[in-house]
């Protein structure tokens, strides 16, 4: 079993490296995800309005197997910071887990420096807002209500408490995009958020906001692996049907 897992990881790694080299030569093309198009517009409006963008990375520790979603969120935060760093009001990044909050601060600083606006970076715009899912949701609700937010993004691992934050954004009549790797949260966000990313769309968000060759390559690799899994499932079903396994 370990060897199969090692094989999958190695195969994916080789594919990722190969496609990263190939994609450098041609600009990446993606299918349109309407939620991300509207997010792009909302960010532009917030910069013009002089209001803030708020990004919440969730309460999940990076030390757990669910750490992938907050890592994707950090990638998105980096692109957002570069785009909004020259706005009158800096973006706010929050997390419900301490090490993630520190990484959010670091990512914000890196984004400002990359945009040539390092002097505008404010350390307290990256915050820890609670240490449990519900306390961090409560902290996020108060930020959405009190800090002149016009666009909020929930990207990471959330539970159904994400609906409370979506409701807070709805009350303030502001834009909210929800993206979680948890199924119950995806259902809650589908019902309550203005825009929602389902399943692997969460991991594509960074690529849509600031595509690099490695982002484009990772989306291609995901597609290839998905087709391999589909073929494997169909082959397994056919073998079972004919009594061969």
């Amino acid at each position: 079993m370990n060897l199969i897992a090692l094989g999958i990881v190695s195969f994916s790694g080789i594919l990722l490296l190969a496609f990263s080299l190939i994609k450098r030569k041609s600009p990446p093309k993606f299918r349109i995800i309407p939620a991300l198009t509207r997010l792009y517009r909302a960010i532009g409006l917030s910069v013009e309005d002089g209001t803030r963008v708020f990004i919440h990375l969730g309460p999940m520790s990076l030390l757990t197997p669910r750490g992938g979603a907050p890592l994707a969120g950090l990638g998105m935060l980096r692109h957002l910071t570069e785009r909004t760093s020259l706005s009158d009001r800096p973006p706010i990044a929050a997390a419900g887990e301490a090490s993630l909050a520190l990484l959010a601060q670091d990512t914000l600083e890196a984004g400002y420096e990359a945009a040539g606006a390092g002097e505008f970076y404010q350390p307290l715009s990256g915050r820890l807002i609670g240490l449990t899912p519900f306390s961090s949701a409560a902290g996020a609700m108060s930020i959405i209500r009190d800090e002149d937010i016009s666009a909020s993004i929930l990207i990471g691992h959330f539970g159904p408490e994400a609906a409370l934050m979506a409701e807070a954004a709805e009350r303030e009549n502001t834009f909210l995009l929800g993206a979680s790797d948890d199924l119950s949260s995806q259902a809650a966000l589908y019902a309550s958020a203005q825009e929602v990313l389902i399943g692997e769309e969460l991991y594509a968000a960074g690529a849509y906001l600031g595509a690099t060759a490695s982002h484009a390559a990772s989306i291609t690799v995901q597609d290839i692996l998905r087709w391999l899994i589909i073929l494997g499932l169909l082959a397994g079903a056919a073998l079972k049907l004919f009594g061969m396994i």
């Binding site: 890592l71 690799v221 995901q222």
Partner: peptide, 22 residues
């Protein structure tokens, strides 16, 4: 889909293409 996204995100960080540590 989520598992594949996690895998490729992890690999990008492992290769140093994404650096969430600044």
């Amino acid at each position: 889909g989520v598992a594949l996204g996690t895998l490729t995100t992890g690999l990008r960080i492992l290769f140093g293409a994404d650096r969430p540590y600044g």
